[in-house]
Simulated scan of single mutants.
Amino acid sequence: MLIQAIEIAAALIGLAMILSFWRLLRGPDILDRILALDTLTINAIALLVLFGLHTNSTTYFELALLMAIMGFVGTVALCKYLLRGDLIE
């Protein structure tokens, strides 16, 4: 039962990743593309957590945590670049 739930959740998250990637490619504005990239990162983190549950391994949870930190820093850096035009003051 748990395996089936993980497989269904992974399929739905995969669909969400495809839709986020479509918005990343076709976004009318740079802000839409940044939001799509952040959403794609969150979906990838969710897939890593699901794969960790499926394989019963803690390594994927640590990888998901590192990916979350890098995704947050990347989003903040892109937004700061858009607001000020440079990253370092």
Rank of each mutant, 00 (worst) to 15 (best):
residue 68 A to L: 10
residue 52 G to L: 01
residue 31 L to I: 12
residue 81 Y to P: 00
residue 35 L to P: 07
residue 64 A to G: 02
residue 60 Y to H: 14
residue 62 E to F: 08
residue 50 L to H: 05
residue 81 Y to H: 08
residue 37 L to K: 11
residue 15 L to I: 15
residue 83 L to M: 11
residue 14 G to V: 04
residue 25 L to I: 13
residue 79 C to W: 03
residue 17 M to G: 08
residue 61 F to A: 07
residue 63 L to S: 05
residue 1 M to A: 06
residue 67 M to V: 07
residue 70 M to R: 02
residue 73 V to L: 15
residue 29 D to A: 06
residue 19 L to T: 09
residue 37 L to G: 11
residue 47 L to I: 14
residue 19 L to H: 01
residue 46 A to C: 15
residue 41 T to A: 15
residue 22 W to H: 04
residue 45 I to L: 09
residue 62 E to I: 13
residue 51 F to H: 07
residue 5 A to M: 03
residue 26 R to D: 13
residue 6 I to W: 00
residue 23 R to T: 04
residue 83 L to C: 05
residue 1 M to T: 03
residue 59 T to F: 08
residue 21 F to A: 12
residue 7 E to A: 11
residue 40 L to M: 15
residue 7 E to R: 10
residue 10 A to C: 04
residue 59 T to A: 15
residue 80 K to Q: 09
residue 59 T to I: 11
residue 24 L to Q: 03
residue 68 A to Y: 03
residue 52 G to R: 01
residue 26 R to L: 14
residue 41 T to G: 14
residue 68 A to W: 03
residue 27 G to R: 04
residue 81 Y to D: 00
residue 74 G to H: 10
residue 76 V to W: 02
residue 77 A to N: 05
residue 71 G to N: 05
residue 56 N to K: 13
residue 12 L to A: 09
residue 71 G to F: 00
residue 79 C to N: 07
residue 51 F to Q: 07
residue 57 S to R: 15
residue 16 A to K: 05
residue 23 R to I: 05
residue 40 L to Y: 14
residue 50 L to N: 02
residue 5 A to G: 00
residue 74 G to Q: 06
residue 24 L to D: 03
residue 33 R to V: 12
residue 61 F to D: 00
residue 20 S to L: 05
residue 63 L to H: 01
residue 43 N to C: 15
residue 42 I to W: 07
residue 55 T to S: 13
residue 51 F to E: 05
residue 35 L to D: 14
residue 43 N to P: 03
residue 2 L to K: 01
residue 45 I to H: 02
residue 18 I to F: 11
residue 16 A to N: 13
residue 76 V to D: 02
residue 52 G to E: 04
residue 57 S to I: 05
residue 33 R to G: 01
residue 81 Y to N: 06
residue 87 L to C: 09
residue 89 E to C: 10
residue 86 D to F: 09
residue 15 L to D: 06
residue 48 L to E: 00
residue 84 R to H: 12
residue 85 G to N: 04
residue 75 T to S: 12
residue 62 E to L: 12
residue 77 A to S: 14
residue 86 D to K: 15
residue 2 L to S: 05
residue 22 W to T: 09
residue 73 V to D: 07
residue 33 R to N: 02
residue 57 S to F: 06
residue 47 L to E: 12
residue 20 S to G: 05
residue 65 L to S: 04
residue 89 E to D: 15
residue 68 A to D: 04
residue 72 F to H: 01
residue 55 T to I: 14
residue 78 L to A: 13
residue 28 P to I: 08
residue 66 L to N: 08
residue 17 M to D: 05
residue 20 S to Y: 03
residue 50 L to D: 01
residue 34 I to K: 04
residue 37 L to W: 06
residue 83 L to N: 11
residue 33 R to K: 14
residue 27 G to A: 06
residue 12 L to M: 12
residue 49 V to C: 10
residue 1 M to E: 06
residue 3 I to L: 09
residue 4 Q to V: 00
residue 23 R to E: 04
residue 5 A to H: 03
residue 9 A to G: 02
residue 78 L to H: 00
residue 41 T to D: 13
residue 2 L to G: 03
residue 47 L to P: 02
residue 25 L to A: 14
residue 72 F to M: 08
residue 81 Y to G: 09
residue 71 G to Q: 04
residue 64 A to N: 04
